[in-house]
Design a protein around this nucleic acid. Structure first.
Lengths: 106, 106
DNA sequence: CCGAATCCTTTTTGATACTG
DNA sequence: CAGTATCAAAAAGGATTCGG
């Protein structure tokens, strides 16, 4: 983004590449509104996508520190996902974008 | 975005589909910072993309009222592109996104 | 249920060439 | 220069399958 000579170009570009992939923003928004951990299958239903895509996005978002995964006590294969603080700092921006799009005339 | 039962889902989804295509935000950002009309070839250089893609994006952005095209006096094949007022209303959000990405630790 | 691997389909991109 | 048509390459998504 911005001019190519801008030193932060690479950083921003990488983030945008992540956030503009399908379901990224959707997942973050769902996690943000949920205000709590959510399981894979529920998330999958809410964002209405394939497990393949949800899995891919979660891994990417986790790698970027926007989402965290944790085990549920007792369950051997029970994991839940939450939005990190870092991810939450993005939510006002996501909300603005959503509002902007929702308020357009067309 | 948001839950599927949200009535504005379709609208937002369409906008986001446009904005998340490659170079859309980049083009808007360049046009916004330029504070004036810009020619096709210059824009192409600044966003570093193929003429095919730039052409496609411009048409889409124009169709959504975010970018406008106008003829230069005298030139038969001299066109310039500018961001519309509507498009400019998106710039604070883009700026926030840019700042957010730029300020991240990683 | 969780989620990754495979494989196939669809979408998107870009190089090239061509018109005005 | 400004764009578009064509076509081939690449990227992304999803159905299915399978192991934990």
């Amino acid at each position: 983004m911005v001019s190519s000579c801008d030193p932060t170009y690479g950083l921003v570009d990488e983030l945008l590449e992540l956030l503009t992939k399908s379901k990224s923003l959707h997942i973050l928004l769902v996690l943000d509104r949920k205000k709590g951990p959510i399981r894979f299958s529920d998330l999958k239903k809410l964002v209405d996508s394939s497990s393949t895509t949800v899995s891919r996005r979660l891994k990417e978002l986790e790698a970027h520190g926007l989402v965290s995964k944790s085990e549920v006590d007792g369950g051997s294969n029970l994991h839940v996902y939450s939005i990190t603080e870092d991810g939450q700092s993005l939510s006002p921006i996501m909300q603005s974008l959503f509002d902007w799009a929702a308020d357009r005339p067309q």
